[in-house]
Amino acid sequence: MQRRFLFSALFSASVVCLGLPHAMAQGATPLRVLTHGSFDLSKDLLAAFEKDAGVKLEIIKAGDAGEMVNKLILTRANPIADVVFGIDNTLAPRAGAADILEPYTGPAAERKAVAELPKGLVPVDYGYVNLNIDKAWFAKKGLALPKSLADLSQPAYAKLLVVQNPATSSPGQAFMLATIAGLGEEGAFDWWKHMRGNGVKVVKGWSEAYYTEFSRNGGAYPIVVSYTSSPAAEVFYSKEKISESPTANLFLKGGVFRQIEGVALVKGGNPAAKEAAGRFIEFLRSAPAQEGLQTTMWVFPAEAGASRVEVIKQHAAEPSTFDELKAPLTEAQSKAWLQRWTKTVLK
């Protein structure tokens, strides 16, 4: 899930038009849905929604979630979508300040969710960015697992951690924010300074970190910034039938951040599609969608009381605690921290 801002690709977002029977498609209302590149629900689910709502979905994938928000801001005079999915709790302040969302007041917005977002965004899912470890590597080396972020800055753990650049990656930004929330700003950047000296590896995005640099996949780093659900995905996608994940989560203070994703109406969207956009919001909070997203986007359902699929229940434990910022993240604060991180770790 490499999510980075690509300004040159601003007007080249991929558009996926789902197939409806020709006669229905001809008379169906087009509904433009802007998402980040990691949006993934089964074609059967989306096709069933199209048939039920009498619409033709145009899924516009815009790369990273930050890039997606920037596209909405830059095109607000002539919106490119009617509904947007994927604005999370780190990006909600930017979207609110830019006034690009229109309040939705349907049933899904009124029901309490497991994880809440600022008004205007209806929560759809949530998950946790944290550290994953390669269990076989640690067993082979006979090295104890770190019990704190401070441990990771010690010589015994030199050159073991790979992270994503927070300026180019959503999980990278979330992990940086976790360190600030858990250690305090000065403590966090002092830790990052020590990690630079201890050989932390920085890459652009999640895919490169997990599939290239992580020792589980042939790389040299047995600790990677990933997701709580990653061990479950390892079991789900394994070619052999395994009952235990080869990776595990490390829930360390300053190393766990909760991301909450939501859906919203786009301000100035096509009035003729507004009813369909509302139905799409309700659909994302419906039982079939809340179940389906667990093994396609590897997140937890936001709908209170939604059932968990078995692989999630068995292999994606939620942390008992996580690190939250004391105040809502503003765009100015985000930029300041990114600049400080870059200066501390890369320059």
Rank of each mutant, 00 (worst) to 15 (best):
Q314C: 01
R111E: 13
T35C: 11
R285M: 02
R285F: 07
A47F: 03
R258G: 10
I223S: 02
F7G: 04
F138M: 00
P21D: 12
D323C: 03
V33F: 03
K56W: 15
G255N: 02
G96S: 13
D40W: 06
Q339A: 14
L101V: 15
N78S: 14
A332D: 11
G269V: 08
I60M: 14
F251R: 02
V263G: 06
S230R: 11
S148W: 09
L346D: 03
E50N: 12
E324M: 07
S14Q: 14
K239F: 03
G86H: 07
S8G: 01
G142V: 06
P166E: 02
P155M: 06
D151P: 09
L145C: 10
A115C: 05
V309D: 04
S207M: 08
T29C: 15
R279H: 02
G66Y: 04
F236Q: 04
P166D: 04
D52E: 15
V114K: 15
S238C: 09
T90Q: 10
N165Q: 07
V114W: 05
A109I: 03
K112C: 13
Q173I: 05
V114A: 15
A81T: 08
P118N: 04
G120F: 08
Q339V: 07
S215G: 04
A97G: 06
A306V: 11
T29D: 13
F251V: 06
L101R: 02
L284N: 01
S307F: 11
T228Y: 03
G187R: 04
K239Y: 01
A273Q: 11
V203D: 07
P222R: 10
S42C: 08
A273R: 06
K241Q: 12
Q339Y: 06
V162K: 00
V163S: 07
F280M: 10
D40I: 06
E261R: 13
Y211C: 06
K343P: 00
K347L: 04
F5W: 01
E116D: 14
Q26T: 15
G269W: 01
A272P: 03
P246A: 10
Q333Y: 09
K159C: 08
R258A: 10
T330P: 01
P118M: 04
D40C: 14
F39L: 09
V202H: 00
V129S: 02
L34G: 09
S245K: 01
F138E: 00
Y237K: 12
T75Y: 07
M24D: 05
M1P: 15
A167H: 05
E67Y: 05
G205H: 11
F85D: 06
L265T: 06
G66N: 13
F39Y: 11
V235F: 12
Y221T: 04
A108L: 05
K56F: 15
G262D: 07
A272G: 02
R32A: 13
R94W: 10
K140A: 14
Q26Y: 12
W341V: 03
I73S: 09
S245N: 01
E310N: 10
N198K: 08
Y227F: 15
V200D: 04
G127A: 00
A327V: 13
L131N: 05
K326L: 00
